[in-house]
């Protein structure tokens, strides 16, 4: 049996000699084509979001995962791409997203009630094809439930987006996709920034706010990146605090909100 297959292999190789060098060797894997996520510091260190691959962003609450998602959606929709958001626990803020530059007309929003709905939806959506980015937000799903998702589901998702131009972005509290992900980022919140400016137009009827929330800083660590040649540090990433894969970026509140609120105060009859 073995000799038969070897003979067949030899025959095929000799028949294709001169045209194909080694027909039975898998083609060398090309690094995935990446596009910016809209946060320049992060794009510099990650190389952008890989097309045809799975990107996993994880971290605790307030770490900036949603801000990253919002920025990526804004960038993709600005490039006239059609994006989809599978919202496992219906927590997307369309007003905030629009003010951040997301073109809502180009966004398909699927409001799920649980992660089962989310995974079934993402499967159907990816097989439909044609989306520039498909994001699945599992941030509010209990980490215990997400952890129970078998690895073959993640492999299937990776296989589905492979050889397509779709970016599959997954947000969660913990890393679950493991080796299925082309890019894994861990985000962590640092100190929040509060400006202690006195407001110029205090309303007598209301309590004068002592400070304003300006934003906060987050730290992003590249845990895994298929686009980069060396990523062995993911085995022990916590031991390398000063790694070049660790970047700090600021998330700022949109100024329009405070300005708008000033106008509201001025027109407030009280």
């Amino acid at each position: 049996m073995h000799s038969k297959s070897a003979a067949l292999r030899l025959y095929v190789e000799s028949a294709l000699a001169g045209r194909i060098a080694s027909p039975f060797r898998p083609p060398p894997s090309q690094p995935p084509r990446a596009v910016p996520a809209g946060i320049p510091v992060l794009d510099e260190v990650t190389g952008g979001l890989p097309r045809g691959g799975l990107t996993e962003i994880y971290g605790p609450s307030c770490s900036g995962k949603t801000s990253f998602l919002q920025s990526a959606l804004a960038t993709r929709t600005a490039s006239s791409e059609v994006c989809a958001l599978i919202d496992a626990h219906d927590s997307f803020d369309p007003a905030g997203a629009e003010s951040a530059g997301v073109a809502l007309r180009q966004l398909l929003w699927i409001r799920c009630k649980n992660i089962d709905h989310a995974f079934r939806s993402v499967d159907v959506l990816l097989h439909g094809g044609g989306f520039g980015m498909v994001a699945m937000d599992l941030s509010d799903a209990p980490a215990r439930l997400v952890r129970q998702i078998p690895l073959n589901i993640w492999f299937r998702l990776r296989r589905t987006v492979e050889n397509t131009s779709t970016i599959l972005l997954v947000l969660s509290q913990e890393s679950n996709a493991k080796t299925c992900a082309s890019l894994v980022l861990r985000l962590e919140k640092e100190a929040a920034a509060w400006s202690l400016k006195e407001r110029s137009l205090p309303s007598p009827a209301l309590h004068t706010p002592a400070c304003l929330l300006d934003g906060w800083a987050s730290t992003a660590e590249v845990i895994r990146s298929r686009a980069r040649p060396k990523n062995l540090h993911f085995l022990n990433h916590s031991a390398i605090p000063e790694s070049k894969d660790l970047v700090r970026f600021d998330l700022r509140m949109k100024e329009a909100r405070s300005l708008f609120s000033e106008e509201e105060r001025m027109t407030d009859p009280g």
């Binding site: 946060i39 927590s91 951040a100 998330l251």
Partner: peptide, 12 residues
Amino acid sequence: GPPSGAQTAFRV
């Protein structure tokens, strides 16, 4: 081009 800078997001 894409919007520059990162803006805070809100989860409802």
